[in-house]
Simulated scan of single mutants.
Amino acid sequence: MSVESPLCDGSGIAAMKPAFQLIETLRYEPDADFLRLELHLQRLENSARALGFPLDMPAVRRQLAAKGQGNKALRVRLTLDPDGVIDIETAPFEALPAETVWRLGIAKTRLRHDDPLLQHKTTRRALYVAAREEFSREEVDEVLLFNDLGQLCEGTITTVFLEIGDKTCVTPDISCGLLAGILREELLRKNVVRQAILTLDDLRNAQKIFVGNSLRGMIKADLSCCFATL
């Protein structure tokens, strides 16, 4: 399916083009093709339509098929610019060991709960870079962000999942201002997790913490090592 939605204002006059691209980061496995491919393409199509990026979906599928070959796992980075130009880059991918536990920090940098662009995956990354730079690579593996209302949102490259109460697994509600992550979407559709508005106390009191994304899957996490004072 092709999406053609020119960047224009209500009068039909071309508007200023965004200074960012849409991005999807996929994982290719020789025995499973692209993981969660249809969810990635659905998000790309939805974002392109919402933000006015022209999209030739058949061309995306053809280019992905050409890149998804070989007998090694790949990290695949797909970008779509405001003119509809598609670019796909690949790099070798190595999964984390099953016993991996990521150390988490909490950033002082805040997201705005009412920023609609946070629900789309784009190359507009300044806030996430700022949050990550609050900690050294030796201190933490991932940094979590809250919004201006004190609600838990997401990591700089991951979705957050908490096991609470009767082992219910919850993830921050999309209304808090966060990316509609692909792993998150898959688990919501399967009723493995549910959305909730979460606070710092919820994070501190969680029985288990996980972070994850479509590239790496679910990763056990530990908050005890380091976090900022909010």
Rank of each mutant, 00 (worst) to 15 (best):
Q69Y: 06
Q63E: 15
E45P: 06
L22A: 08
I157R: 11
T123W: 05
K108Q: 15
V140W: 00
L145K: 04
T100Q: 09
R103S: 14
I88Q: 09
R137M: 06
A48Q: 10
V129P: 04
F93L: 11
E142A: 02
G70F: 09
G150S: 07
I86T: 12
R75H: 13
F93D: 01
E89Q: 15
K121W: 08
A50V: 02
K108A: 10
E45S: 15
E89R: 14
P54E: 13
G68P: 01
T100N: 04
L104D: 07
E99Q: 09
G105R: 06
L35R: 04
A48S: 15
G105Y: 04
D148V: 09
L64Q: 04
F53G: 07
T156M: 04
R132S: 13
G68C: 14
D115F: 00
L118W: 00
A98V: 10
V101G: 09
R61D: 14
L145M: 14
D87A: 13
C153Q: 00
H120Q: 11
I157D: 02
C153M: 00
K67V: 15
G84H: 06
D31E: 15
N71M: 12
G70L: 09
F53Q: 11
R62Y: 02
R125M: 13
L78E: 08
L144G: 08
E139C: 03
V60D: 12
